[in-house]
């Protein structure tokens, strides 16, 4: 479909968002990502029964930790986008990018080992 999505998003592929661990999200933030989001299947459509629901609960737990350490919980998010939904994926990327721009750069950053070509918002997306 050749859809555009913001270049500041770095994608990490996982077989199912059920594989996403709280530590994956936290490590990204610790290393300076401005935001991290998980793009999983729609509720009720997980190929592995409930991987996306587990991811959703883990995202919620990481939000709580961020809140506890004084960081905006909105920097992590769960999106439900089916694997074949290109426009939905691009829309999530744009929505998250706008949100993170609004929040500004992470006070933990910048990310040391990656170059987004001068982009003002660095994000990691974990998705199927």
């Amino acid at each position: 479909m050749r859809l555009d999505y913001p270049p500041n998003v770095r994608i990490v592929n996982v077989p199912c968002t059920g594989r996403v661990d709280m530590l994956h999200l936290l490590k990204a933030i610790e290393d300076g990502a401005d935001g991290v989001y998980v793009a999983g299947c729609h509720e009720g459509e997980c190929h592995f029964q409930n991987g996306n629901l587990k991811a959703k609960r883990r995202v919620a737990a990481v939000k709580k930790i961020l809140e506890e350490v004084g960081l905006e919980p909105e920097r992590v998010e769960m999106f439900h986008v089916s694997a074949s939904d290109g426009p939905g994926f691009a829309a999530a990327a744009r929505q998250m990018t706008e949100r993170i721009r609004g929040l500004g750069p992470s006070p933990v950053g910048p990310m040391p080992d990656c170059d987004f070509g001068g982009s003002d918002s660095e994000q990691v997306a974990l998705g199927v």
Partner: peptide, 17 residues
């Protein structure tokens, strides 16, 4: 081990911030 990793990360994030 896992909870150690999560807490360590949270503490590092807080102190980096």
């Amino acid at each position: 081990t896992k909870e150690v990793g999560i807490l360590a990360s949270a503490l590092r994030i807080a102190r980096k911030k």
